[in-house]
């Protein structure tokens, strides 16, 4: 039993706000659902995205099993990607999330799982075109 990690102010803010947290579900014209990771890895993420007819993201919701950085990254995505075009959102990387949340390099692992879940969700939404 040991001490706890020191989290950045941005991680703490998004952890507290938890934008988009909750059950992803069909909420609009086109809905995509993505998943990545596993409990045994320590990180599991499920993301739902709703697109409008033009391919812009209307809403992003998520559930995850993960550390505060994982939850903060999901919240940051929910606050950042709405109004982005699907292709623009697909270019959001784990590194960009880490920079936005002032996270050290060793926390990139869980963020890559978040990135994978986002791409999976966007691809899933695209399949309905």
């Amino acid at each position: 039993m040991t001490g706890r990690a020191a989290w950045s102010a941005e991680v703490r803010r998004h952890f507290r706000l938890a934008r988009g947290a909750g059950e992803p579900g069909p909420g609009g014209q086109r809905f995509g659902h993505g998943a990545a990771g596993a409990v045994s890895w320590g990180t599991q993420v499920r993301i739902g995205v709703t697109l409008d007819q033009a391919g812009h993201i209307v809403d992003l919701s998520w559930r995850c099993y993960g550390c505060p950085a994982t939850q903060a990254a999901c919240s940051w995505l929910a606050a950042t990607v709405p109004r982005m075009h699907r292709e623009q959102a697909a270019a959001v990387t784990a590194t960009a999330m880490a920079e936005a949340l002032a996270l050290p390099a060793e926390r990139l692992g869980p963020l890559i799982v978040v990135e994978d879940a986002l791409r999976d969700a966007l691809q899933s939404a695209g399949m309905n075109d």
């Binding site: 039993m1 040991t2 001490g3 706890r4 990690a5 320590g42 550390c67």
Partner: peptide, 12 residues
């Protein structure tokens, strides 16, 4: 409280 893991790094 004590958390049942070492969590000062990415791998607990």
């Amino acid at each position: 409280l004590s958390l049942g893991s070492a969590c000062t790094s990415a791998s607990a």
